[in-house]
Amino acid sequence: MSAQSDWRPREVRPGGEGTGADGLRHALAALGDFGDVLTEAKVVVFRDFQVAEQELDTVMDLLLPNRLAYTHGTSPRTKVAAGNVYTSTEYPSEQTIAMHNELSYSHTWPARLLFYCATTPGSGGATPVVDGELWLESLDEEVRDAFAGGIRYSQNLHDGFGLGRSWKQTFETDDRAVVEAFLDAGSFDWKWTADGGLRMVSPVRPAWIKHPATGTEVWFNQADHFHPAALGDDVARELAQILAPEELPQSVTFADGGPIPDAYVRHVYDRGLELAVDVDWRQGDLMVIDNVAVGHGRRPYTGDRRVLVAMSD
């Protein structure tokens, strides 16, 4: 069945139950099984409940059954609280973060993400969300066919000094044995380098997968995020002058090792953002997304936007 181009997130607002964490808990009880609600809606936004940050833990306990650490993450984040709560991203405010499914390049990923607005941005700063089925269907046939065989991700993680994230930041540990166990579980090809860094290459990953509950095929990869073309022409050129492709902090190829054309990457990048629905933020709002069914990103903003995120299996 074709995806509906008019899809929108479901919004839940306070009724007679009031606002705050208590009001949201009452609203959740009225919804019934939240797992079923999320599978059907794909994204649920809890709007105008004015949940205070100090109440967030009690709400997350209901919405995220098992909060996960950001293991193997590539985005710069800071853990801000116990229970695996992080800043949503720390890229400069003027940058657009393209659509993606969290940790789709790894062998394990969260099923749900929860976003919470602690500080309303001065302007902009929406979190766009895109239906993964629609994203896949929107791609030109030539591009889909090229990605059908899957892709392979590569990462070079330094030991503390260098471009990108260190392996200690990426895996939230300084214990090599913990990292090695994770990589072996994911069938990575990896080695420690002479300077203390880590070189890792993933097995072939699919470009799209079937949703575990609905069976719907959805675009599910981060090829554009790992590809220099998504960084912009100037940045890509500068990196290419400094480093060989195999030395970049992160890179991606087709399954056979062949290069992915820049035009394909820009096509995927552009279609995701064009089809996305923006979720604007007000302090105290929450959003839960099905991380397989939809991709998410971030629009540029001004002011002191502060959005927190937690993840769950």
Rank of each mutant, 00 (worst) to 15 (best):
D57A: 13
F115H: 13
T119Q: 08
A29F: 04
V43H: 12
G124M: 04
Q50W: 03
D57S: 11
F49R: 14
L113Q: 14
S106F: 06
Y91T: 09
A82P: 04
D57L: 06
A69T: 08
T39F: 04
R47Q: 10
P128I: 05
R47K: 12
S106M: 05
T39R: 07
S138A: 15
Q50V: 00
G122K: 04
E137F: 03
K42G: 02
M60W: 07
R77F: 13
H107T: 14
E55D: 12
P76V: 12
Y70W: 05
P110Q: 13
E55Y: 03
D36Y: 00
D131A: 11
H72E: 10
Y86L: 04
V51N: 08
A69Q: 11
P121M: 10
T71A: 04
D61F: 06
Y105G: 08
T127C: 12
C117H: 01
A98S: 13
G124V: 03
T71I: 06
P92I: 13
Q95C: 02
S106D: 11
G122F: 01
A111I: 00
A81W: 01
L38F: 02
V44K: 04
T74D: 14
G125E: 05
Y105F: 15
G35H: 07
S138P: 02
E53T: 09
Y86T: 03
A82K: 05
A69M: 10
Y116K: 13
W109K: 12
T78W: 06
E40W: 10
A41K: 05
K42N: 02
